[in-house]
Design a protein around this nucleic acid. Structure first.
Length: 1131
RNA sequence: GCCCGGGUGGCGGAAUUGGUAGACGCGAUAGACUCAAAAUCUAUUGAUGGUAACAUCAUGAGAGUUCGAUUCUCUCCCCGGGCACCA
């Protein structure tokens, strides 16, 4: 007998099969049809991957089994050839992608053929073939016609250096994959497909398909259907909260005065008072020895008399700064150091006359250390009434290592800071909010503390009684006009117009008019104000800090042009935060019942509210802007972030009203809220939601433990939301299907006429996109300039192309009728291949079940990579459903059954990639071991749905097995029978048949191996048994089995023979081994007949020597009996 | 951070779905054949102790449920894949 020569056998049979066309599917055959599908490969320059072979072999095995079961099988192949790598290769080398695609697919075809897959090559398709993409374009026109294709502005990744839009895949760590430039976001008009219109059906219909559970889950997660409610929260400017003397919890502020200062002079008492008003505990120690400054002594004094801790802020001036730094140098930790200093350097002014921070500089402090002791360190340059140059301040800031943005010197040469501004600076950049007041005020607002109110009340009443002429007139106008707001749906206090009050006490001031809800103060000034501008400025500044906007009018202005004044006031009201654009914020929640527990609101950093409100009205505008900026950048690198720590910033100065509890709750922005999902805003329920709880704990927000549950729709409207976005369908690339649309100057967007399809891709010299990011097609004037199909006037072609998902969304339909030039496929063929077959002819049974039902059907079995279980699968389901709606396909779903395979990893568990140089070339293996060995190995190496590591050494196992099978030929005898072997083969038929159906190829092969090992022990094997065995092996190793089959004098191919059936009677074991356990441990085994009576088996067990030894004189508590398996005796 | 897989000998992996843990293959060791090697065939091969029969320990770690757990439940650790923190 000849040796097993795989080279000879494999090429021989591949040619023979091609000649006999045994794998060609027959349209409209009477046999039951079976459509098995693999994801058609992208013909990359890397050649066939061992991963392709894994999936192709699996479906090949199933297809071959189906043929042997009597089916008319369609197992097609083609090329998904549009794509980035080919385009990038074209950009790099200037080679025509058409030629590259042809070369690559030629290599792939040859490689695939060398593996003996039973593809119907006569139906080969290619998405880049104009005869194919004509229909892709045609389908796009149908989407357009039905209004499902539209244009929208979308944000894309943009590489500023390459001037090209980037796919997500091409962005690595926020940088362009090719040139490493940081990727920017850009807005661009894009074609979109409205897949969201089908979201609900895409979700629901998963009930009717046979996908692996993980795949269904992935689809459902991606679609992300959730039922919840939208609830509107009113946004308000909270009342200016004025303190009620609660100071215990507030920050301690220590004011250290300067060399010439005492607690009684300069601005110190004023500053102390103002800060105390705002609930802060303020210390103003009288530093000794100010005449002869000794900073160490003074530091000792402070330490002795003033408590300093990490909640302390030291505000210093001049020489006080030196004392403060002495303290910090001693290792004392404080929260913040604010230093007002005079920046005198060089020769500009007489140093000696001005004690300053420059003195401290001369003392050689360790500033790095000092800066670490305070969480914040700010130096604010203030020259008092001295004139200094700003440049000097900047130089000094540099010397101190302080960012120059802290320099508060004013242009051009004067940097004196006035007291209100000083207060402003201390508070504005500080982290202390104005403390909200407890309880209700006279009008539902607190505008001052009770003490001040009592003190000023009488004066207010008097003023109201005796208004000036101007005040009188304006008051009348304000009441009469009511300044009706633009939005009729306004609710609450301002429903009938803005509510004004006159002579209202705010803080320690009495303002002329105020609209509290909008925080607008109107002052009417007499001539006297010209003389006290300074006081007015202070008043204005303080009111501003409290969140008010102030407009001033002169008496005569009010009297002479009252209408003009009213007009100005209404204009101010319009742009104020509570103007027409700012009614509220709608949140989406899946748990509207938890609304009573909502203690704060969180917005996405990109939430539109932030553009609607005046950021100026936020107390921490700078911080908020900074956060938004950081969040914007973060979104570009978030994928690479290892640990996502929750971050956020409160919008200080506005509040939301919980519609259930009517309480004012804080509003935060945080990037754990996505702008794209829901409404980009949530109500946070820390008591019930883990994420909210985490966030609340991090930022010390209150957490309610118990709260009342609400009904589902008590406070909002029930709504169904989907995570799914519409499909961005444009690419500014060359290598894709041109979108068949024309831009006409007169008619606008005009679809290309169907008779003009396909719009072929023109040849270009340069595959680079244009300077402004348009597709390279935009550069070909000859192609771009065209006539409008409607008016025949001047028009331009759309230069965007389609994504490569387009062609792959419907390719399985084209296989049924690949050469049709009248339609994408004939209805006849579609119906035959997609709708379930009639039951098989009488006497025949199928080992698999066929689905029946209205609109049901599709590709019978579709296997592909796990990486495609969301996007590709969803896109093609959407596309198919759209065609079904148009009555163009007979089923509502494209695939009846979907499975996925795991990756093949290189040694060390890495992904195979050309750059790592760890790619396995299947050609070498086919040459050395043979295609049958490679196929067998890939099926044997591990569970099909899991990732497995490639191992070259293990290949020898399957090869040895095939050689053993080959050598068995010499043992074949026609007549003899062997009962033991009959039994084994029947068992193998059952096991292999079953395992193939559930893709447990590895155990199917091990069954076949066990069988050959057993046979090896005998001198002969009957031909019948051997042939059955060969049939079982034939889907795995088609060449070898075909050769032996022909050696056994068969004329027809083994692949056209019938799949063996097993006889259940022959499989029944006559004697069954039963384990006998004592207390759960196996102590003996006994034999029993199948289904023998429980009592008899127990008797046998007790008679066993070993067992009787164990149970002697023991109290048996319990005997557990498992039929045909074990007895467990417990004591 | 979230979701989905997974973790079993020197290695790839089996285990009828709660019932003998380690099928099958690779590798390793010994033997047969051979002048020899390769190939092939035969035997052994989770660990520890024991001449042996056998015993004990072992499925990432720890707990729990159970007569019995690789399998179910909880907590934690590690690896792989995916991602849009999905409210």
């Amino acid at each position: 007998m000849e040796e097993y020569n795989h080279l000879k056998i494999e090429s021989k049979w591949q040619k023979e099969w091609e000649r006999n066309k045994i794998y060609q599917a027959k349209n409209l055959s009477k046999k039951p049809k079976y459509y098995s599908l693999i994801e058609f490969p992208y013909p990359s320059g890397d050649g066939l991957h061992v991963g392709h072979i894994r999936s192709n072999t699996a479906m090949d095995i199933i297809s071959r089994k189906r043929r042997m079961e009597g089916c008319n099988v369609l197992y097609p192949i083609g090329w998904d050839a549009f794509g980035l790598p080919t385009e990038n290769y074209a950009i790099k080398t200037g080679k025509d992608p058409r030629i590259v695609t042809k070369q690559n697919s030629n290599i792939f075809r040859k490689q695939l053929k060398s593996l003996g897959f039973s593809f119907d090559w006569s139906r080969e398709i290619n998405t880049t073939d104009p005869k194919y993409y004509k229909w892709t374009q045609w389908m796009f026109l149908q989407f357009l016609k039905k209004g499902l294709a539209y244009k929208a502005k979308m944000i894309i990744n943009w590489c500023p250096k390459d001037k090209i839009g980037l796919a997500n895949e091409e962005v690595v760590n926020g940088c362009c994959e090719r040139c490493g430039t940081a990727v920017e976001k850009r807005e661009k008009e894009q074609w979109m497909l409205a897949i969201t219109k089908y979201a609900d059906r895409l979700d629901r219909d998963l009930d009717n398909v046979d996908y692996l559970p993980q795949i269904k889950l992935a689809q459902r997660n991606w679609i992300g259907k959730s039922e919840g409610a939208e609830i509107e929260f009113k946004i308000i400017h909270p009342t200016p909260a004025l303190p009620e003397g609660k100071g215990e919890e507030s920050t301690k502020i220590v004011i250290l005065h300067g060399k010439h200062g005492t607690p009684e002079n300069y601005f110190y008492p004023w500053l102390k008072k103002e800060l105390e008003k705002r609930s802060h505990k303020v210390y103003l120690p009288a530093l000794p020895n100010t005449e002869v400054p000794n900073d160490e002594e003074q530091a000792d004094y402070v330490l002795k008399n003033v408590p300093l801790d990490e909640n302390t802020v030291i505000v210093t001036h001049s020489f006080g700064g030196v004392v403060a730094m002495r303290l910090l140098e001693r290792g004392i930790k404080i929260r913040e150091l604010i230093l007002f200093a005079t920046p005198i350097t060089g020769t500009f002014l007489d140093k000696k006359s001005r004690p300053s921070i420059t003195d401290a500089l001369a003392k050689g402090f360790n500033y790095e250390k000092i800066k670490k002791q305070a969480n914040f360190f700010r130096v604010i340059f203030d020259s008092g009434d001295t004139i200094v140059r700003k440049e000097d301040a900047v130089i000094l800031a540099k010397n101190l290592g302080i960012y120059s943005e802290y320099v508060k010197a004013k242009e051009p040469h004067f940097c004196a800071i006035e007291e209100p501004e000083m207060l402003n600076l201390i508070l504005e950049e500080n982290t202390y909010p104005l403390t909200p007041s407890q309880g209700e005020g006279e009008f539902g607002y607190h505008t001052t503390d009770p003490k001040t109110w009592r003190a000023l009340q009488e004066r207010v009443l008097e003023m109201r009684k005796n208004p000036t002429e101007a005040e009188k007139k304006l008051w009348r106008y304000l009441r009469k006009n009511n300044l009706t707001p633009a939005l009729p749906e306004r609710k609450g206090e301002n429903a009938d117009g803005y509510h004004f009050r006159r002579q209202q006490i705010i803080d320690r001031f009495i303002v002329d008019f105020v609209c509290l809800s909008e925080k607008l103060v109107i002052e009417v000034d007499g001539d006297i104000h010209d003389y006290k501008q300074k006081e007015d400025k202070e008043r204005t500044d303080i009111l501003r800090i409290l969140g008010f906007k102030i407009i001033r009018f002169k008496n005569e202005e009010v009297l002479s042009d009252t209408d003009g004044v009213i007009k100005k006031i209404s204009e101010e009201l319009k742009v104020l935060p509570f103007g027409e654009d700012l009614g509220g914020v709608t949140v989406f929640t899946t748990r509207p019942d938890t609304i009573f527990g909502a203690t704060y609101m969180v917005l996405a950093p990109e939430h539109p509210l932030l553009s609607r409100i005046l950021l100026d009205t936020l107390a921490n505008k700078k911080e908020v802007l900074q956060y938004i900026e950081v969040a914007r950048k973060k979104s570009e690198i978030e994928k690479t972030a290892e640990n996502k720590i929750k971050t956020g910033v409160e919008l200080k100065g506005i509040k939301a009203i919980n519609p259930a509890t009517k309480e004012e709750i804080p509003i935060w922005i945080a990037d754990y809220i996505l702008a794209t999902y829901g409404t980009g805003a949530i109500m946070a329920v820390p008591a019930d939601d883990m994420r909210d709880k985490e966030f609340a704990e991090k930022f010390s927000l209150p957490i309610i433990e118990n709260y009342q549950k609400a009904g589902f729709e008590d406070f909002g409207k029930k709504i169904t939301k989907f995570k799914l976005h519409d499909w961005i369908f444009s690419r500014q690339r060359y290598w894709g299907e041109p979108i068949p649309v024309i831009h006409c100057e007169k008619c606008g967007l005009v679809p290309v006429l169907e008779k003009d399809l396909p719009i072929k891709l023109p040849k270009v010299k340069n595959y680079q996109p244009t300077e402004n990011g348009e597709s390279p097609l935009a550069n070909i004037a000859k192609w771009v300039n065209t006539k409008c199909p409607k008016c025949k006037g001047k028009a331009k072609r759309e230069t965007d192309t389609m994504p490569n998902w387009a062609g792959s969304s419907w390719y399985y339909l084209r296989y049924t009728d690949p050469k049709n030039s009248k339609a994408f496929a004939s209805q006849k063929n579609l119906k035959y291949w997609l709708t379930p077959s009639l039951p098989p002819p009488k006497g025949e049974t199928l080992s698999f079940s066929l689905p029946f039902g209205e609109g049901q059907g599709g590709v019978d079995w579709y296997n592909g990579g796990n990486e495609h279980t969301t996007l590709h699968l969803l896109y093609s389901r959407f596309w198919h459903k759209f065609l079904f709606n148009l009555d163009l396909v007979p089923t509502s779903e494209p695939y009846i059954k979907r499975t996925s395979h795991g990756l093949i990893l290189a040694k060390g568990g890495e992904k195979m990639s050309k750059s790592k140089g760890n790619v396995i070339n299947p050609d070498d293996i086919v040459k050395i071991y043979g295609a049958d060995t490679l196929r067998l190995y890939e099926m044997f190496m591990g569970p099909f749905d899991q990732a497995i590591t490639w191992s070259e050494e293990a290949l020898i196992g399957p090869r040895r097995f095939l050689e053993r099978v080959w050598n068995l030929q010499s043992k074949v005898q026609k007549k003899e029978k062997n009962i033991k072997i009959e039994f084994l083969i029947e068992k193998a038929v059952k096991k292999v048949s079953y395992d193939i159906e559930v893709m447990k190829f590895n155990t199917a092969i091990s069954t076949l191996m066990i069988f050959t090992n057993e046979i090896g022990k005998y001198d002969f094997i009957s031909q019948g048994v051997y042939e059955k065995f060969l049939k079982l092996l034939s889907p795995f190793a088609p060449h070898l089995t075909e050769e032996i089959w022909s050696n056994l004098k068969h004329k027809d191919s083994i692949h056209l023979s019938y799949w063996p059936k097993w006889d259940e009677n022959l499989i029944k074991d006559e004697a069954i081994k039963i384990m006998v356990q004592i207390n759960g441990k196996v102590r003996a085994e006994i034999f029993a007949q199948a289904d023998e009576k429980e009592e008899d088996v127990k008797k046998k067990a007790f008679l066993n020597e070993n067992i009787s030894k164990y149970i002697a004189e023991k109290d048996i508590k319990k005997i557990i009996y498992v039929k045909n398996r074990l007895i467990n005796i417990v004591f």
